[in-house]
Design a protein around this nucleic acid. Structure first.
Length: 443
DNA sequence: GAGTTTGAAACT
DNA sequence: CAGTTTCAAACTC
């Protein structure tokens, strides 16, 4: 319907556009010494995007490999780091090394290789790529090369960015320097459109001096109408990663229309907006969550991310993990519904409340064997077994398994031996969890 | 379909 | 960070 309604002034505005470094935390750029990077960072949910299409892959015996399941698709980030050699070049023109990532069967291979000389014979800049997660970062470095920061002017920066963005295959929205600036990248048009380039330019020298460089976060496509912001492009890749659970994640076909009247669909009140999709066939009034109000929408996204970098991340995690179907990242705060009505986000997502919830009088829990029933009202801390298998515990298990895999790789164990090590570690973790659960039950 | 209840998000 | 207000969905009648 989208009929006009009382104009609501959103709270995000220029003075709030100070979201720098919000999304750059935890990335691997700070570990890349002596490098002046331009990086593209893509937080991915609803399946990995291959918005940035990187052709080809070069087998490399030194590459890291990681099982797809080990990567948290919510935290995947793609980096393109620009290596600049001031001794060889007077220009900051990004070129592209043969460093690509490509899904292969159930694994993603991160590879790096020697940097090919540019066609003109000069040897200066190149770009490498890496995947990293919050927990485990994988890097692609070019061995034996020392690179120092090299100052860029506005034009050089834009040229470099343009080159980097040339590998993006369809329109998307990027954040530069972790939210400091926004850029529209449309492969069908020339170069990225930096929305706040002036401020980017004004600060670039300081940034470079600090060795932080420019960081571009892809927020989503600028032309999408009803699909998720981070819609995967190639099916093989998409298949290997978890999808958002129903209720928290909309796709264009199944999502419910919103009925917002006062938020312009530019606040997280709006389910479409919070799910990262534009309104389509909704029953909202004065909707600005559409392509027509692209700029305003981008500002709203930026504002939300500035206040909460996880604003658009799924609220429900671990939806694939078997018996424990998932958990609410923040936990609910229900007081009157007993967490048995759809007001409760946990109940709505068809998951049980956990000790992370702050609900009162919760009835949405697993009472465990021989104890209690749904009629019993409990506090969050007493819930079983989720009081033991907490997100932190699961994360710890993941870390242990990953550490084992790394150790196996470091010790150049055979795949069978590596698998054995990981499974043994998993057994130890399970044993410890079971022990803790038993102790809790008997106390 | 109108009014009420509810809890997350936004605001102070 | 806690308390309050705003908002839109869920629910009731």
């Amino acid at each position: 319907m989208n009929s006009p309604a009382t104009e609501l002034q959103p709270q995000y505005n220029e003075e709030h556009d100070d979201t720098a470094d919000s999304s750059s935390k935890g990335c691997c750029s700070e570990r890349l010494n002596n490098v002046c990077p331009i990086s593209i960072e893509i937080p991915i949910w609803s399946g990995p995007t291959s918005n940035i299409s990187l052709p080809g892959i070069v087998p490399n015996p030194h590459h890291h490999t990681v099982q797809s399941e080990m990567l948290d698709p919510l935290n995947l980030r793609y980096h393109i780091d620009s290596f600049i050699d001031p001794y060889q070049s007077t220009q900051c023109q990004l070129t592209y090394s043969d460093c690509f990532l490509e899904p292969q069967l159930s694994q993603y291979h991160l590879v790096s290789g020697p940097v090919p000389a540019p066609p003109d014979g000069s040897h200066h800049n190149s770009v490498s790529a890496s995947w990293c997660t919050n927990e485990h970062s994988l890097y692609s470095m070019m061995p034996g090369e020392l690179h120092k920061p090299f100052p860029m002017d506005h034009q050089q920066f834009q040229e470099g960015l343009t080159e980097a963005m040339s590998h993006i295959t369809h329109p998307m929205v990027c954040m530069v320097n972790g939210g400091e600036h926004l850029a529209l990248v449309n492969p069908h048009q020339q170069g990225p459109v930096l929305l706040t380039m002036e401020s980017a330019s004004a600060q670039r020298n300081d940034t470079l001096t600090q060795g932080k460089g420019y960081e571009v976060t892809v927020l989503g496509t600028s032309s999408q109408t009803a699909g998720p912001l981070y819609e995967a492009q190639d099916q093989p890749f998409k298949k290997q990663l978890p999808t958002r659970n129903v209720g928290m994640f909309c796709d264009s076909k199944s999502r419910k229309p919103c009925h917002c009247t006062r938020s312009q669909c530019l606040k997280l009140y709006c389910e479409c907006f919070s799910n990262g999709v534009m309104c389509s066939n909704c029953d909202c009034s004065n909707c600005h969550n559409n392509a027509e109000h692209e700029m305003k929408r981008l500002k709203a996204i930026k504002w939300c991310l500035g206040h909460n970098p996880d604003a658009f991340r799924p609220k429900i995690a671990g939806v694939k993990s078997g018996a424990v179907r998932g958990w609410h990242n923040k936990g609910c705060n229900c007081k009157r519904s007993g967490c048995l009505k759809r007001y409760c986000e946990c109940y709505e997502a068809n998951i049980m409340c956990t000790s992370g919830c702050k609900c009162v009088g919760c009835r949405n829990y697993d009472a465990g064997p021989q104890t209690g029933s749904k009629d019993k009202i409990v506090n969050a801390k007493d819930k079983w077994p989720v009081s033991v298998i907490t997100p932190a515990v699961l994360e710890g298990v993941g870390d242990c398994l990953f550490a084992q895999a790394e150790m196996a790789e470091r010790d150049t164990q055979s795949p069978a031996q590596a698998e054995h090590m990981v499974l043994c570690e998993f057994g130890c973790c399970l044993s410890q969890i079971a022990k803790t659960m038993f102790e809790k039950k008997t106390n």
